[in-house]
């Protein structure tokens, strides 16, 4: 059995908005094993980004707060750590890359300044060795002239290059977990292919676990080992990558897969999911997907289904599978 790197138990992150409480993340449980790439999938507002920010301890405060649950990184509960202790974790144990790298790079500092500060702070290396390490990292992510790059400012780089700098920075302290929040969404397809390839190489080389957050099922299929599907703040399905795309169980997962136009093969008409994603903070009785579900029956509108374990790796939150297998 592989060792567990991250374990999230009953995590709840709530927001206060106009005196109402928005349950952005509403009781989720999952695990990430060593060296595994786990994708967190869902549409906007499903709580996937808020989950990652909760793990990093970056939930916007004071309006947002992790109100309940545990986030265990190698047995240490991050939810209880002080901000000072989180400083030592962020960047060292868990690193994060974002959708738009320009917003996470400081425009008035050179790439070298920013990369070195991370390495010096966490690895406590003298400047010369840190520089050596920085050059090594930049070469690793595919830059041919890293010495020159260290002296450049972020605005001189293209989107793809910036994202590679971010990956170099994230990997420089050899983190246990890399959280990638829509890492290729802002990139063009040919550049996206480069970055995805790089992330694959890196996860193998460093045996780093990756939590990949994305809305793009194609990217998931390229990169992930296991998939967690979220809807309206809850997990609706967990499955291995092949199981998920070959035999999706939850009607929402089925809908998601069917509504994506495919590059191969012809479909006459896309099967859209009716209705809209519920606005955050809407209180829904019963199953949260019931209103849009094409297999809805009476029980769905009255009771909330639990996330049930089906077999070894698979869980689903749906009454349709109440009598099938599992515990």
């Amino acid at each position: 059995m592989l060792s567990t790197i991250l374990e999230v138990n009953n995590l709840k992150t709530y927001f206060k908005k106009n005196k109402r409480i928005v349950r952005a993340v509403d009781g989720i449980d999952f695990k990430i094993n060593a060296g595994e790439i786990v994708a967190l999938v869902g549409e906007s507002g499903c709580g996937k980004s808020m989950t990652s920010l909760s793990i990093m301890g970056l939930v916007p405060s004071p309006e947002g707060k992790v109100v309940e649950g545990e986030i265990l990184l190698d047995g240490v509960n991050l939810a209880e750590l002080t901000e000072k202790k989180m400083y030592k974790i962020r960047g060292k144990e868990i690193a994060m890359i974002f959708q738009e790298p320009m917003t996470s790079l400081n425009p008035v500092l050179t790439i070298g300044d920013q990369l070195l500060s991370v390495i010096i702070y966490h690895l406590k290396l003298p400047k010369r060795e840190a520089e050596q390490k920085a050059i090594e990292m930049l070469e690793l992510v595919g830059f041919s002239d890293p010495e020159k790059l260290l002296k450049s400012y972020p605005h001189r780089l293209s989107g793809g290059m910036r994202q590679r700098v971010m990956i170099a920075m994230a990997m420089s302290c050899n983190p246990k977990l890399l959280i990638a929040d829509e890492p290729t969404t802002a990139l063009d397809v040919t550049i996206q292919a480069q970055v995805l390839e790089l992330m694959k190489e890196i996860s193998i080389k460093f045996s780093t676990s990756i939590l990949l957050i994305t809305h793009d099922l194609g990217v998931v299929s390229e990169l992930a080992d296991r998939v967690i599907v979220m809807y309206a703040g809850q997990i609706v399905e967990i499955a291995n990558i092949d199981d998920l795309f070959d035999y999706p169980l939850h009607p929402y997962t089925v809908g998601l897969i069917n509504s994506v136009p495919k590059i191969e093969g012809e479909i006459e008409r896309l099967q859209a999911i009716k209705g809209n994603v519920p606005a955050p903070g809407t209180i829904i009785e019963g199953c949260r997907f019931a209103k849009r579900c094409n297999k809805v029956f009476e029980r769905c509108t009255k009771e909330m289904p639990a996330l049930r374990k089906m077999d070894g790796t698979r869980s689903v939150r749906c009454f349709l599978y109440d009598d099938v297998g599992g515990e």
Binding site: S158, G160, M161, D188, V189, T190, I191, Q192, A193, Q194, L196, E197, D216, L217, G218, V219, V220, S221, E222, D242, F245, D246, I257, V260, K262, I263, E264
Partner: peptide, 27 residues
């Protein structure tokens, strides 16, 4: 050819694995 091969696709049972052409450099 490169553009089409770069599109990430959902791989389901029976999906043929395509060769990926990864372009070097930026536009």
């Amino acid at each position: 050819q490169a553009l089409l091969s770069a599109v990430p696709t959902i791989r389901q049972k029976g999906t043929i694995n395509r060769d990926r052409i990864i372009l070097k450099g930026d536009i």
